[in-house]
Design a protein around this nucleic acid. Sequence first.
DNA 1: CAGTGAGCGAGCTTCCGCTTGACTT
Length: 622
Amino acid sequence: MKKLVIVESPAKAKTIGKYLGPDYEVLASVGHIRDIPTPKDLPADMKKGPFSQFAVDVNNGFTPYYAVSENSKRTVADLKRALKEADELYLATDEDREGEAIAWHLYEVLKPKVPVHRMVFHEITKDAIEQARDNTREIDRSLVDAQETRRILDRLYGFEISPVMWRMVGRGLSAGRVQSPATRLLVDRERERIAFVSADYWDLLATVGTDSQPANQFHAKLVRLGGAKLATGNDFADNGTVKSSARVLTETEATTLVNAMREPATTVTVASLETKPHTRRPFAPFTTSTLQQEAVKKLKFSARQTMSVAQRLYENGYITYMRTDSPNLSVQAMNAARSQAIKLYGEDQVSEKPRIYSGKSKTAQEAHEAIRPAGDVFRTPDELSSVLRGEELRLYDLIWKRTVASQMADARGQTATVTLAVDAPASPRADFVASGTVITFRGFMNAYDETSDEDRNAQDAQEDSKLPSMTEGQALVLADVESKGHSTVPPPRYTEASLVKKMEEIGIGRPSTYSATIATILDRGYAVMKGQALVPTWIAFSVTRLMEQSFGDLVSYEFTSEMEDDLDKIANGDADWRDWLRQFYFGHDSHRGLKDSAENLGDIGRAGRKAQGVSAGRHAPG
DNA sequence: CAGTGAGCGAGCTTCCGCTTGACTT
């Protein structure tokens, strides 16, 4: 007789099967096996009655009706068959809320007659697996409660509010705990853009040098005039007014100054010279969210495409699991990254101590490690260039570089900043500034030599060039000075990358759903792609306004993180899940529940209709 | 008598999160 082990993913089952040997059969549940069906998929005798609206009986303890999903029927049959041949059952689904629930559903559906163990592990290595097998526990009922609460809440939210959208806005529309705030992000940003008032300001750009040789020249920007700081884009509010005490230079003033400075009597002297060390740390290894962001930005993949390419890499054993919220590397992976970096770039380019990265997302569940090349010895992109093609190779390359770089040394260099005093006839004193960074030690940049977009923009502003050597008090040659006009620009629209980043920040959605949520927003017609930008449509505006008016709490950006706090209480046994759902759905004290909000759409004008409805309403048959 | 049209009623749309194929374009 064998022992049956059930994990979530078939690829994982294969690896673990190898570690556990012939006494164990390892199969996969392939994700969730049961779910709450939509009401139209309920058995005929349940279509009328307490389950008809949600497939959850809200009047009887929020009892959910579960059914084995169509796609899982074969899997369940296979598992049942295997269980008959087994004398023990190990439920080895992921150690997070969803994984615990899958274990419980497996238990409910398989009805095992043999001893059952709940087994959890964080790393897929022989040691970790064997240790997990020898240290099992029971299914954590409170954690399952928390998952069911989450699931039921999402059903109530979606299926109570979507019909409101059909009535008020258009057929086929939808609302949900994740998609509605995500849509609202797009709408809020568009509102900011519409309300935005552009402002114009000017500054001067001088070309100066230690002599008139072009090689010894550099550009410097006017930053202070007569002791007052000159306004830049950051000094303007969104309504076009100046929000600081900075001085705004007009075109006329700029032209007058340029003309004065072009007089031969103008002198330029080095007022101060400062050199500061510059260091940059490598980025953390990829999580789902950061992988999507980088692939969208650097490879021009869509979020969905990124996931499907990563899936292929995972299934063929090239990378670790691609749906994760943890940037942590296993000890083996850390060693693999370090020894590969030492071999390729030299020992001095690698950080002295292993770098450990921790997740910053408060809603992270961290059931998996970071996305990285698979194995205890990483294969380089070059080694794989004959087996991997196009997209797959490019994504592997990105993952490999990021992982190796994450264990390398900081890049170091110096940033020199020089302040120049420009004295022109009949003009206030003008201070110009130039700075240049020189990287003297590349460290992680050997592997991952790419700066983030923010840095690139910052560099545009101050042309990152090497400065010639100078001393304080030195007189410089002014080769040219010109005025430059600028206009403030509204905040940019979200791209897939920046939306995923924002969603992770406020804790809505999960690694397995980021790309699906964006697809939903596009499918519903809430947004259209314009280049890389997600542009909200008028439908999104209508839906968001309706949500804000009638379900303000539910589209607040804090709703999910507050829900997570409450689910934690349920998971710890400090709160009752039925009480929680009751308050959410039926309300309590002064707080309107979801049901009341949906039925009386926050419109005082409808109060009369409500009263009429109640008096004319039929009572339950007696 | 056949074709038209008003009026009525039934059926449909929808959530999030976990995991892969089996489908079509």
